[in-house]
């Protein structure tokens, strides 16, 4: 069982990030659940979702001790860093978090200036894709190729084909 929380500002693609992770894992034959924080969320407010990936049945769609946290902003780090299992992963969008910040020493912290990279690649809303590339590179829950295929599929279904999405994924995977 792998338990993942994606968190950030509403509008950063937090729920989409979780959705792409869940869908990619499902296509690899895994059982998955995706559960959003829902209700009076709005653009600029906080949002998060929990994804669980397992070879067997999944009981609760929630978790209090994630293996992986994808934090797209500083409040997300504040809220979820302490809950990560020892030896787990914290992915941090360094563009929006104080560079002087200190982190737990018993977890893997992967710091990537995701927003800056996305802007530099001409895809300013693609910070979450840079994050996904980093997740593929470091955790091995899926390969970069598998992820690229799922991202292309997800946005094609929405009628938003953008070759720069793959650029963001690959940039995230190189760091």
């Amino acid at each position: 069982m792998v338990e993942i929380i994606c968190a950030g500002f509403g509008g950063q693609g937090v729920l989409t990030t979780g959705l792409i992770i869940a869908h990619s894992a499902m296509m690899l034959g895994k059982e998955v659940t995706w559960y959003p924080s829902y209700g009076s969320e709005m653009r600029g407010g906080t949002a998060n979702c929990t994804v669980k990936i397992s070879d067997g049945k999944i009981a609760s769609p929630c978790t209090k001790k994630p293996d992986i946290v994808c934090a797209l902003n500083a409040p997300a780090v504040d809220k979820f860093e302490s809950s990560i299992k020892p030896s787990g992963y914290l992915f941090v969008n360094d563009s929006l978090v104080d560079p002087q910040r200190s982190y737990r020493s018993d977890i893997h912290v992967v710091r990537v200036p995701m927003s800056e990279i996305a802007i530099r690649l001409g895809n300013p809303k693609g910070a979450n894709l840079v994050m996904l590339g980093a997740v593929a590179q470091h955790t091995g829950i899926f390969t970069l190729d598998e992820l690229e295929e799922q991202v292309a599929h997800y946005f094609a279904k929405k009628g938003k084909v953008n070759p720069k999405n793959a650029d963001c994924l690959r940039a995230g995977a190189m760091l």
């Binding site: 959705l19 998955v32 559960y35």
Partner: peptide, 10 residues
């Protein structure tokens, strides 16, 4: 319930 309604599964 809200959990089953809001969550996604295959």
């Amino acid at each position: 319930d809200a959990a089953i309604g809001q969550m996604m599964e295959g």
